[in-house]
Amino acid sequence: MKKYIFIVSAIVLGALVCGALDNVHPYGDPGTALMDDYFLANSYKSLSTQNIVTSIVFDYRGFDTIGEAAVLFTAVCAVGALFREGRGRR
């Protein structure tokens, strides 16, 4: 019984998301993109990086990348802690 309520609400949520996503902007036409046009125009000029995505990942939004490296490091620490070879203390 409870399970069906959950499934129905998941379907409702999915349908609402489906319907709402039509309103972002028409697919393939993001309109004026101030921030991205800045990257497209300036990244090669001021940084000489051909690949604009790389220049965003490592320069404009470099702080996200360190957060992301920290996420990987966290995952390694957590998985390593879960499978650590503990000395038993029976």
Binding site: A15, V17, C18, L21, D22, V24, Y27
Partner: peptide, 12 residues
């Protein structure tokens, strides 16, 4: 808007 629709369906 097919990609957005597919995203919604995948989400659901």
């Amino acid at each position: 808007n097919a990609p957005f629709f597919v995203v919604g369906v995948l989400f659901m």
